Computed example of a mutant assay.
Amino acid sequence: MAVEGQDYTRVNGSAPSDTGTGPVTVEAFFWYSDSHSFELQPVLDAWRSGQGERVALRWLPADFDRKPGSRQNFKPQQRLHFALEALGAVGFHERAFSAIHRGRTYLNTDGAILAWAAEQGLDPAAFAAAFASPEVDAGARRADALLQAYGIQGVPALVVDGRFLTGPGLVRETSPGFPGTLAVLDGLVAEVLSGRAAGAHPVGRRAGF
């Protein structure tokens, strides 16, 4: 049984959220260069495929770098993700992970990312335009705001319905396939749906799973 405060926590009530109706949203915060995010990505995508219409999975690239002039690669990789989304090239999400962790292609600068996109067969001009677009700016700002509001300190991190935070780190997951993390996700999704069916959010009581 999942334990609140150990396997998952409740998100601060001030966190922005567009949840409440429709599919239960699972927001997956990640970093392309993070090995645990790389390992979780196919597992989580497969889990989502088995959920039918009851769950919507949203991948959100994290940027923990707040130092002006820093040479960290969070922001370029964040823009990479949203540029792929803008072009409808979400299938390249897994390719980006693979390029870094299997191909040792370090996508840590704008130039390296633009070159990689061209090598993948994406139209260079279209990708460059998307990469620099206001749409990508807006996506990055929203991801940054959610990261701050949810108080996320590391990745991968999973937020369910804008209210529950979990992930391999909280679950202390070491098994291949992340069965413990998926079990907690299943329980949280069921808890949200149960609360909706009852006509009220279950905030303030222990989750019954």
Rank of each mutant, 00 (worst) to 15 (best):
L185K: 05
T166N: 05
A15T: 05
A128P: 03
A89K: 11
V26S: 06
R102F: 03
L188F: 06
G169F: 10
Q78W: 07
L40S: 05
F74W: 15
E39H: 13
G13S: 14
G151R: 12
L114S: 01
G52V: 03
F74A: 14
A46D: 13
D186E: 12
A132H: 10
G139F: 10
Q72L: 14
E85W: 07
A143Q: 07
L60G: 01
Q72D: 13
A15L: 08
H36D: 11
S133F: 09
N73A: 15
L170I: 01
R58T: 12
P168Q: 06
L107N: 06
Y150H: 15
V3Y: 09
R66S: 13
M1A: 15
A157V: 01
K75E: 15
V26Y: 08
A197L: 11
L87Y: 01
L122K: 05
L182C: 10
A132L: 04
A83H: 01
G91S: 09
G139Q: 12
R66H: 13
A143R: 11
L158K: 08
G204K: 01
L80N: 08
G22Y: 02
L165H: 11
G20V: 00
L107V: 01
H81G: 04
E27A: 07
G167K: 04
Q41E: 15
G91K: 09
G199M: 00
G162L: 02
P124W: 05
A89N: 07
Y106F: 12
H101S: 02
Y150G: 08
G13T: 13
G20T: 00
R206Q: 13
K67I: 15
Q41K: 12
G121T: 06
G22D: 05
A126I: 02
H101Y: 02
N12L: 08
A149H: 10
A143S: 14
R163W: 04
D63A: 11
R141M: 11
P23S: 12
L185H: 04
D161M: 02
G187Y: 08
I113S: 05
W31C: 09
A197I: 06
Q120K: 03
P76L: 10
A118F: 02
R205K: 08
S33N: 12
G111I: 02
L185R: 08
R66Y: 13
A130R: 00
H201D: 14
D110W: 01
E119I: 01
E53S: 15
L182F: 04
R205G: 03
G103D: 15
P124H: 05
A140K: 09
S37M: 10
F82E: 01
A83V: 06
G169M: 07
T174V: 14
S17W: 06
R71W: 04
H201C: 04
R206V: 13
S175T: 13
G204S: 02
A86I: 11
A62K: 00
L165A: 05
S35A: 14
D18Y: 03
G121R: 08
Q77I: 04
L165R: 01
A130G: 00
E27L: 06
P202F: 00
Q77Y: 05
A117C: 03
A143E: 09
Q120T: 01
G88H: 03
W47K: 03
T166Y: 03
A28W: 09
E191G: 04
A138R: 15
F164H: 13
G103I: 04
S49Y: 00
Q72N: 14
W47N: 04
A200P: 03
Q51V: 07
